[in-house]
Design a protein around this nucleic acid. Structure first.
Lengths: 145, 145
DNA sequence: TTCATTTCCTTAACATGTTAATTGTTGCCA
DNA sequence: TGGCAACAATTAACATGTTAAGGAAATGAA
């Protein structure tokens, strides 16, 4: 007897999609007035947190595939929110850095973003919120160490 | 003093993305030999579980936006995996039904899909697995009742 | 040095996500 | 009945996800 698939209502992939949608919906609303997308916001946040870095590291930390980052970086550059600099030591490599305008977008909207996150933390309760983050981390193959 | 954003390493949206990537990666590998995508698989699974239904309901149950479903339904129809029928009572509406070929794809790969899911359940442990599904459901605004 | 390999990045092609505008139908109500 | 709001579905436009192929630069071994 082979195993049966769970009902779609108890499917882990679908539950992850729906949860993500629930979390991102208010964030997207907040971002709509900035003119940048969710992924562009993520890239800028990583740059604020870690500073200038090469494209590969940026893609990893932003959880973006490399081809996506290539396009997003070009878009952000065209918007004047980041700069791209070729590495003189290794001319394959490229450094990406946030500009003052990019920094301003993060600064202007961080409080609102933090409030949205705090709302979810309150809704779940601090314990369940941390428990959820821990469980999710255990599904992430890149988070083992 | 305004609240600060959490480090991206403890960001709920990013944790959801990474967890989803971890879960979907083996499923995508499995699907690569079927010639259908993850979303097409999801649509077919819903049709198997609930049978023929109108497009709006199908989009809801598949967690897809309507424009995405329009394209996916057209693709699946071209592949001969579903049929589309206009409702005679209400000619705005459309019914979608899986075909024998579509059913066969699900049947042929369900055991393998179930095994992948079972792997995650084992990795987390039954209790944590159920706890995770419950926590995720609490982030889904469409799951309140 | 030479050349195959590896690495970083880009481009291409197709599918989906997302929002907005559009089309065709139905229902309602003045 | 005539006209308008509401609804189902499509289309359009742009951004991203995903895989594969391509280009340029560095690396290492013969």
């Amino acid at each position: 007897m082979t195993k049966q698939l769970p009902s779609t209502s108890r499917s882990l992939p679908i539950a992850l999609i729906r949860a993500r949608e629930g979390v991102m919906s208010p964030i997207r609303d907040m971002l709509s007035e900035t003119g940048i997308t969710e992924q562009q916001w993520r890239v800028l946040r990583v740059l604020v947190e870690f500073g200038r870095m090469d494209a590969k590291t940026l893609a990893d930390r932003s959880s973006l595939l490399f081809p996506s980052l290539t396009r997003i970086a070009a878009t952000l550059r065209d918007k004047g929110l980041v700069t791209q600099t070729r590495d003189d030591k290794d001319r394959r490599r490229q450094f990406i850095e946030i500009t003052a305008n990019g920094q301003k977008i993060i600064d202007d909207h961080s409080p609102q973003a933090a409030q949205i996150v705090a709302g979810f933390k309150t809704a779940l309760g601090d314990d369940d919120y941390e428990r959820l983050l821990d469980l999710l981390a255990r599904l992430d193959p890149g988070a083992d160490p």
